[in-house]
Structure formats: C-alpha cells, structure tokens
Design a protein around this nucleic acid. Structure first.
Lengths: 181, 181
DNA sequence: TCGTTATTATCTATCAGTAGATACACAGGT
DNA sequence: ACCTGTGTATCTACTGATAGATAATAACGA
C-alpha cells in the first residue's frame, strides 16, 4: 500500500472520529513514518487531502454495494444489503460515516471538500431511488422520497448510536426499514 | 445578556457550523469585544465551555418543548410539535443540531463534553418515549423503539439537509413521522 | 552500454500564525 | 478589604505551508 493510501487511511480514522479539524499533517506523517512536509508532496493543501478522502470513501462505498439490479439478480434485497453496509461501518470500524460527519459540518469545510461530500449524498440517493423503484415498483418521485427517508434514518441511526455509545440503538432505529410492505 | 451568555451564544454558532474544534477562545473573545484571557475567567478550560454549551442547549431544547402531557392537554400532537422544533433549528438558524454534531464526533471530545452530549439524547429519548406511550397507548418498550427511530430520523434528516444544502430534504425525510397510524 | 536528464519521494530547516493556558496587575463596586 | 471582571504580557505547543537539498529510480539519446 502506497504512502499516499496510508495517509488517506490514517486521515479517515481521524476524521471519522472527530471531524475535519481533528487531524493535522504532522499526526498523519508521524503515524506512517514520514515528515509532515512530505505529506504536502502528496496533497498540496489540507483541502486537497480532505476532498480526495471523501471522493475515495464514496467510490469505495458504492463499489462495495454493487448495483441494485445486480443484487436483485442475486436474489438479495437491495435495502437489506444497504442497511448492512451501514451497520458494518458502525460495528466493525466503530466509527461514524465519514461523509455523515463531514456533511454535518459542511458549512465549516473548504469548498472542494464540501463538493465531494455532497457527491456522497447525491449518489446514495440515486442508488436508493433505483432500488426502491425496482423492489416496490414505485414511481421515481415516490422512490426518491423513500430514498431520502432511508438515508436520513441510517445516518441518524449511526449518529445516535455513536453519541449513546450503544450499537443496539442502530438496530432498533433501523428495524422499520426492513418491514415487509 | 451577560458576557458569559454572549460567549456561549457565539460558541454555539461556531460549533453548530463546524464542530467542537471549529472555535477558539480568541475568536469568541474578539466577537464580543473582550480578551481571550477573560474567556478563561468564565470558563477555565475549553472543555468547560463545551460542556456548559451542551448542557444549556439540552435544557433550552426541552424547556421550549414543554412536557408531552401538557401539549396533549393543549390539543396538540407531541410528535408534531417535536418535529417542528427540529425544523425550526434547521430553517431559522440554518444550522445543524448542536448535540447532533457533537454526538457524531463524540470519540474526539473531552470527557465532560461527551457526558453532556449524551444527556441530550437520553432526555430526548425519554421525552419521545412518553409521548408515544400516551398518543399510541404503546408499551414502554415499543414506545422506546419508536422514540429511537424518530430521533434518529430527525437527526439524520437535519444532517442530510445540511449536507445537500436543501431544507426541502428535511420535509421529505420527516414526512413519514406524521402519517396517521 | 554509458552518460545525461527528469521524475519521484523523501528529507531538513524554517516561517508566520494560532492554539489553550497562565501569572499578575488593575479598576470598580460591595 | 474583598470580590468580580477585565486587561497586559507571555509561555509552550502546534498549525499549514514553503524553500531548498538529497537520494533513488526511470527514461532517453549518443
């Protein structure tokens, strides 16, 4: 794994713990055994690092999911898979969603970080909209409403679980999503 | 309004914009026209300020709501009032919920700030649990589940609305809460 | 093949600015 | 005399960022 990726990995942990202002170039550099000036070689500014972080997080998130159509073809329910991906982020990493945290502090972020954070939400709503259109046969408008509600519930469930330090909260909060309709 | 309250007010705006690490004693001091050393007179450490901020926010939030019983006595639906209080925080202040943001970055906070942040969620879940028990006649266990789901949905709806910079998202996301059951 | 040039990734050293925090002085009101 | 609130001055530590040197590797032309 390249130093650049190691930097991003270290930064992700920091940001998911305490937000964009919770890491410094020196901390990251120390963690992977280089000097802070070398971090600037890979990322000219902190905003560049933050933007790349959000970009990769979004891409990995969606790649790991796969397309809703593909999941259905495998006999899986997209919403269940989606919920589980959120749950894993919370229980395995024991951390908040990166873009959830960045989204909450969006007005305090550099422009390019904000833009990449928004992209996470846009793409997730698109994914969920397609999923609902196919499983429920809903209209695009209806499905988009369901998508926004589902995304909000899951981000909020993570947030409340973290705040209360109790992963059972996530399960309770998200139970309604799986109800057969 | 006392300097102490002015400091808290200024700090609230900063934290709700970019999290706990998004304000400094100097910034607050400059805003209200005193020196940073004088801020330490009112709040010995930054953690003290943060904790007091979360404490007052929680108290004000619950005071403004009133007890669920009292709302019912006035012919109001507690969940509707509760939802509207969240919506006002978002649309009037144009900011994220203070404790929502602090909750998301809980693992990066000083202990006493974390404790006060948790208190917000504990008390809100209690409030909602009572509300659901009375309006739905649900058991305490069932009502607590509804409470956790409602709180998660609303915090998440705020977060996604902020991230997407679109308050209509909040309305869409929270619409399901008002459905007559 | 050999020598030259370019690129990549790191280093040392340093900068101006800001962070939270402290010691101590001072004024005004009780 | 004391308490409250503020100010001056200062400390150490850390921030993101830059300049310039260095070593290692890759690419290229004669």
């Amino acid at each position: 794994m390249s130093k650049k990726q190691l930097l991003l990995k270290a930064a992700e942990a920091k940001v998911r713990t305490g937000g964009y202002n919770n890491f410094s170039f020196r901390e990251l550099a120390d963690e992977i055994g280089i000097k802070s000036s070398s971090v600037h070689y890979h990322f000219p500014t902190k905003a560049d690092l933050g933007a790349e972080l959000a970009r990769q997080y979004t891409d990995n998130f969606l790649t790991n999911l796969g397309a809703p159509e593909a999941l259905i073809a495998q006999g899986k329910k997209p919403i269940e898979v989606y919920l589980q991906q959120f749950q894993c982020a919370l229980t395995e990493d024991k951390k908040m969603c990166l873009c959830g945290l960045l989204g909450a502090e969006t007005d305090g972020l550099p422009e390019k970080v904000k833009t990449q954070t928004q992209r996470f939400f846009v793409q997730n709503i698109e994914w969920l909209t397609h999923a609902y259109m196919q499983t429920d046969g809903a209209s695009e408008h209806t499905a988009k409403g369901q998508a926004i509600a589902a995304l909000s519930l899951l981000e909020g469930a993570m947030l409340v679980s973290k705040a209360m330090n109790d992963t059972a909260i996530f399960t309770t909060a998200s139970a309604g999503l799986l109800a057969t309709r």
